[in-house]
Amino acid sequence: MLRFIKNFFIIFGNLFRKPRTVVYPKERIIIPEGSRGVVHLKLDPDSLDIICNGCGRCSEICPVDCIEINKVAGENNRIVLEEFIIDLNKCIFCGNCVDFCEIKAIEMSYRYQLAEDRRKNLRLSKSELIKPSGVTGDFW
């Protein structure tokens, strides 16, 4: 008899509890800090230039060769980054490129909502990697 009363109170309490299910498109699931998403090119806070100088260290050590870097000689014989392409078809999100970058020019963002209907749309170029990490376009 005691057990029935106990169970009744458990079920009655469940009526007022918030459900554990996250209603996904309306409220976002909280991603922990330090989670590994798409690579994000950092900007210099003062001059808003890209910090990366195109040394090519990250594309050398990448285990699946997914980073392509083009560099040109700018004024005063300085080497300037022209294009930075990351191919998400190949990327395995291991984070080795961030570890080995000497000037800390790249970081991993929280961008995880990735799905495209064309394979070539997953080749992200420099202009898309500069954008602050957020949601890739709403569809509702």
Binding site: I29, N89, C91, F93, Y112, L114, A115, D117
Partner: peptide, 24 residues
């Protein structure tokens, strides 16, 4: 192929996003 989902492995949210995009 209707949708390509990158990631190794992709998060569950990314998979839901891909399926919902096909539905919409």
């Amino acid at each position: 192929i209707y949708m390509y989902v990158p990631g190794c492995p992709p998060r569950p949210e990314a998979f839901i996003y891909a399926v919902l995009r096909i539905m919409n």
